[in-house]
Simulated scan of single mutants.
Amino acid sequence: MILNHIWGLYTHPKDEWQTIEKRHESLTYSMIHILVVALIPTICGYYAAAHIGWTIGVGDPIKINQSSAQLMAVALYCALIVGVLALAYLIQWMAKTFDAKPSFVQSLELAAYTSTPMLMVGIAALYPVLWFVALAGVAAVCYSIYLLYSGVPIMMNIPEEKGFIYSSSVVTCGLVLLVGMMAFSAIMWSMGFGPEYIS
């Protein structure tokens, strides 16, 4: 089953990391996991932007037309997948510093399962009120960081002390990656690729 580790990562994460470590899945399995879970924020974000409208504060909800929403949804989907793959590459690249030798598949598993709460929280977009989505996003980021800190020592087979520093390095790289993607989005938006609003 494609999503069989998700429940375990929410209910007993350390035990689930042990299970993932014992039976590594294939690259295809990890990619299918990412491709499926990344659909959640993509579809929910599209529906919220085109059909419900975002509430920023007072005033009417802000909607964009369907073609703009579709274009943004496709861009979001691609960005999420590229982001998880880039995080996996960074995890593998930094491993040598911490005396770990993971394969790319191990690194991808760690990146994919760590990113899962942040992707699944995309369902919050179905109630597109800015403060609600922001709070849900903060909670998801906190849980993803917890999963990373608990999973790195197990998945990389290193002591917890090294795992803490390794995880902190991954979090830092992840934040830099996120800021880079946001900057790229802002540049594209300013070059005329922004959405068309519906009045």
Rank of each mutant, 00 (worst) to 15 (best):
T55N: 11
G53C: 09
T97G: 14
G180S: 14
G174S: 09
L76P: 08
N65I: 05
L130N: 06
G59H: 04
G192D: 02
S150D: 15
A124T: 02
W54L: 11
S199P: 06
A79L: 13
A111H: 02
S26I: 03
S144A: 09
A86N: 08
I43Q: 13
P117A: 06
P13W: 06
F104Q: 03
A111Y: 01
Y197K: 08
E161C: 08
E25M: 14
V105N: 13
N65H: 05
V170T: 05
N4W: 14
E161Y: 11
A73N: 10
M156D: 01
I6C: 06
E196Q: 12
S185R: 05
P153R: 00
G57N: 15
W131L: 07
A140M: 12
F132M: 13
G83L: 02
I145D: 00
D15G: 13
V171W: 04
S185N: 12
P128K: 05
A79Y: 11
K101Q: 15
V171F: 01
A100T: 04
I158M: 12
A79F: 06
M31D: 11
A100R: 09
T19Q: 14
A95F: 08
Y46N: 02
I198Y: 10
Y113K: 05
P61W: 06
G180N: 14
I56R: 10
F104D: 04
W131G: 04
I154G: 00
M120V: 04
G59M: 11
A49S: 15
Y166Q: 04
M1V: 15
T28H: 09
A49H: 04
M181V: 12
K96D: 11
L27G: 08
Y89E: 07
M1N: 11
G57V: 08
G163L: 05
W93M: 15
I123Y: 12
M191K: 08
Y149D: 02
S26P: 03
L35V: 12
V152Q: 09
E160S: 06
S103N: 07
T97Y: 15
S167N: 04
L135G: 09
M94G: 13
S107F: 03
I165M: 11
M31T: 13
I56Q: 10
T55P: 05
S107G: 13
I43R: 06
I40K: 01
K22L: 12
D60M: 10
S68Y: 05
V121E: 10
C78N: 08
P117E: 04
I6R: 07
L87P: 06
V138G: 03
F104N: 01
W7I: 11
L27Y: 11
L148Y: 01
M94T: 15
T114S: 08
Y146K: 09
A100M: 01
A136Q: 10
K96W: 15
L9F: 04
Y149K: 02
M155C: 01
Y197H: 08
F104P: 00
M155L: 07
R23K: 15
D99Q: 13
L119C: 05
A100C: 04
H5W: 06
L175Y: 12
A88T: 06
T11W: 10
K96R: 11
S30Y: 05
G174P: 00
A48P: 07
A183V: 11
I158S: 02
I34H: 03
I198A: 11
T28I: 13
I43K: 02
S199N: 09
L108E: 12
N157A: 14
I81P: 05
Y113W: 15
F184P: 01
S167A: 12
I40E: 05
Y166M: 09
L147H: 00
V82P: 01
E196S: 07
